[in-house]
Nucleic acid binder design. Structure first.
Lengths: 338, 338
DNA sequence: TTGTAAGCGTTATCAG
DNA sequence: CTGATAACGCTTACAA
């Protein structure tokens, strides 16, 4: 009728063992669900109730030390303040939690400053990296005996690493063909100034889909409102007046709206504008943006799943491509007559 | 002239010791910078060069196990996809990295689902929680012998926990007085429907600053574009026509723009609109929003600093309040004549 | 079916 | 000034 007093501080597996009247190894076996044919059902329940009674939580540090694995992966993203990367994290975190993995976020401005930080490879089992080249990750991965498992998101496929990507090419193709279908022939183009596979892919798809239509003016800008506005001004004022401006990003399109307004041009009556992403800005502006929806949450989720599979099986899975979707809203219309 | 061959796998402190011809404990002393008066300078350099040569990185799991601390804190936020919380994370991560701490993010929809997840209190030294009540954190903190160090952001002060807050009350006061100064007397008010200290504080400050002006119509909505638009429609169409609509959030203000447009009202000519936050949407919309800037990055940074100080010293610091700033842009103007 | 014991890599205590 | 040695909490042979 009497049980040992609850130990002070955090209960350990040893405490559980004492409480249940068994040995530490039995506790470990039961709690790790590896007891079939080795521990009697009665003992199993005894251990389980003891653990529950004490509120036992295994010590992660000890487990990691023993196992040599940490059940933690690092998510490398450019900046979390961008809606895209917030969404990627959300998806990745969801999958990681389900499989009992933790995530440590490594925000890096340019993929270069990867040496510092407390999470050198010591503490992680794998890396999920978004929107960067493979090379900067070299130093990081080298920490752990040469090759830490890696999956890349939103990055160029075919570099020897599993990638999970949005199908930006197909999205841009659908968008461009839609615009051509509206009757547009003279395009302006506002590209992203940050060098990244995804923007190269968007641009290539755009060119390929142009057909007999032409680009009469183009520029590039950072994905910032003011810079986009500045860059869009000369495009919209170009002598060979374009009837549509195709941007690499929704925020750029918002900047283009401001440029159009400054020039006294109405969207879409005088000029159509398209964005890319459909994350947060597309419906805030007026008129709402015609754009390509990128499933960023799913991208993070699928990427994490691919990484955890890689950790489980030891073999890289196939590249994954997620379909985007053309979203037609009020910012695009047939070109003005004349 | 010959040194031991580099060991396979990750080098340990034992490897460094062998390489430098000293004992493991000496290595530990040197690398932890606790050698003054205990280890000779010559030995120190020997150890340092050996560590560098081998590319030694201490094993975090072992260190945590020994020390009983993990150098990891948990950041609890409602959703990372909101620009506010992305910014909070950015600030917190910056400070944590500088002090060699890791962050594990715990996104929780309503502060309720805090039991699950791999990061039960086992693996963390403290909690930085944003925009929620203290109570839901109880189960989490209880894991670790009753009280895991905690700092709250954007939460009600005076509940026995150190808080770090934006001065939303002062921001709202300045905004309201500015609007009254423009001549507005008939206010409409769009509150946030999510229950949170910050919104209560905003509303209280708004009421207190009203003076002889009156609220002729009010409603609340989620911080979503469509819901805000729906909620704003009857406010702007109210019989006792308000001349200004004060929203709890920039995104709500963007929704209000859409409602105004639907009703054929121009902003700010027919009705002024104000937001709150100045994070991402305020300058995207047209006209750009008059709003109150909340220093979200600094909030995260100061909060993390407060938490790490608490971990160091064991005593809670004072509550911190960060000044906001009234940002006047084009969405507000004197009320229309008549 | 259960228990004993070794060991993961680190830091801290204590002798030399 | 330096080196053994123990301990942190866990998993896993292996012994009983």
């Amino acid at each position: 009728m009497s049980s040992p007093p609850l130990p002070a501080g955090r209960p350990t597996s040893k405490d559980v063992a004492r409480h249940a009247g068994v040995s530490q190894s039995t506790v470990s076996l039961v709690l790790a669900d590896k007891w079939r044919g080795r521990v009697s059902p009665a003992t199993v329940t005894a251990v389980r109730t003891a653990a529950a009674a004490l509120g036992y939580q295994p010590n992660n540090a000890a487990r990691s030390l023993r196992l040599g694995r940490t059940r933690t992966v690092m998510l490398v993203v450019p900046v979390l303040t961008s809606p895209f990367f917030g969404a990627v994290h959300t998806g990745a975190a969801r999958v990681a939690a389900r499989r009992d993995f933790g995530i440590v976020v490594y925000p890096t401005r340019d993929g270069v400053d990867l040496a510092a930080g407390p999470y050198t490879s010591a503490a992680i089992d794998g890396v999920l990296a978004s929107s960067m080249a493979v090379e900067p990750l070299g130093t990081l991965r080298a920490g752990n005996a040469g090759d830490l498992p890696l999956v890349m998101l939103d990055s160029e496929p075919g570099r020897g690493v599993t990638t999970v990507n949005d199908d930006v090419a197909e999205g841009m193709r659908a968008l461009t063909e839609y615009l051509i279908g509206l009757g547009h022939r003279r395009f302006a183009r506002l590209r992203s100034a940050v060098p990244s596979w995804t923007f190269d892919a968007r641009d290539a798809a755009f060119r390929a889909a142009l057909g007999t239509a032409t680009v009469v003016a183009e520029a590039s800008s950072a994905l910032l409102l003011d810079e986009a506005r500045q860059a869009a001004l000369p495009l919209l004022a170009a002598p060979a007046r374009p009837t549509v401006l195709v941007c690499d990003d929704d925020l750029q399109a918002a900047g283009a709206y401001k440029a159009a307004r400054a020039l006294g041009l109405r969207v879409p009556d005088d000029v159509s504008v398209s964005g890319f992403g459909d994350l947060r800005y597309a419906r805030v502006v007026e008129p709402e943006l015609t754009t390509v929806r990128l499933p960023a949450v799913e991208l993070g989720a699928r990427g994490m799943a691919a990484l955890l599979d890689l950790l489980d099986t030891g073999t890289s899975g196939p590249d994954v491509v997620l379909a985007g979707e053309l979203i037609v809203r009020g910012s695009t219309a047939p070109p003005p007559p004349g």
